[in-house]
């Protein structure tokens, strides 16, 4: 198998999952697609440095996060800064919080500051471990726990549950 074929077989099956997270990062389809395309391009160029048999999904997410961070840096604003804000909900809880289904939850997720949203998405949607998330986001494990905690707490508030 050529390098290209290995890359296509190993990396491309994660396209849907990466897109899901990219969409939740950027909150729009156009930016999410650009983000995913750039992620695969960088992964392809760096594929020689990837150790076969190790966790390619976590590796792809690390690149996804870097591409996103670089885009923020270019726009000279960092998503990290919002972490300094208080724990209060950034927007009022949606009116139809009790509507059930996934819509209210999706909306509440979108309302979270990005650092908390990503920590929750990586843990609760993508089911990464704290260690993997720490590696992807390039932060200590303690920070991962803190972000997930605050993210879930805000989500519960947004959904009208008890904080």
């Amino acid at each position: 198998m050529t390098r290209d074929e290995i890359f296509q077989n190993e990396a491309l099956p994660h396209l849907r999952s990466l897109y899901g997270s990219a969409f939740r990062m950027t909150r729009n389809a156009h930016d999410a697609e650009d983000l995913v395309q750039e992620t695969f391009l960088r992964a392809y160029r760096a594929f020689d440095r990837f150790t076969p048999g190790t966790n390619i999904r976590a590796w792809l997410y690390t690149i996804l996060h870097r591409v996103r961070t670089d885009a923020f840096r270019k726009a000279s604003r960092s998503p990290q800064t919002v972490e300094m804000e208080g724990e209060g909900p950034p927007v009022p809880p949606p009116q139809d919080a009790l509507a059930g289904g996934g819509e209210d939850l999706e909306r509440a997720l979108q309302a979270l500051p990005e650092v908390f949203r990503m920590a929750v998405v990586l843990r609760d949607v993508q089911d990464f471990t704290y260690e993997e998330i720490a590696h992807i986001l390039e932060v200590p494990v303690g920070t991962v726990m803190s972000r997930i905690h605050r993210g879930r707490a805000q989500l519960r508030t947004l959904l009208g549950e008890q904080g």
């Binding site: 890359f7 296509q8 491309l12 849907r16 897109y19 939850l105 997720l109």
Partner: peptide
Amino acid sequence: LRARLGALPGPEPSPALAARVRGGL
């Protein structure tokens, strides 16, 4: 909450995205 988040249907990429990514490579 974790159970609900895990059951969320993921946003679906447009069918053209895979082709776009392959073309980019």
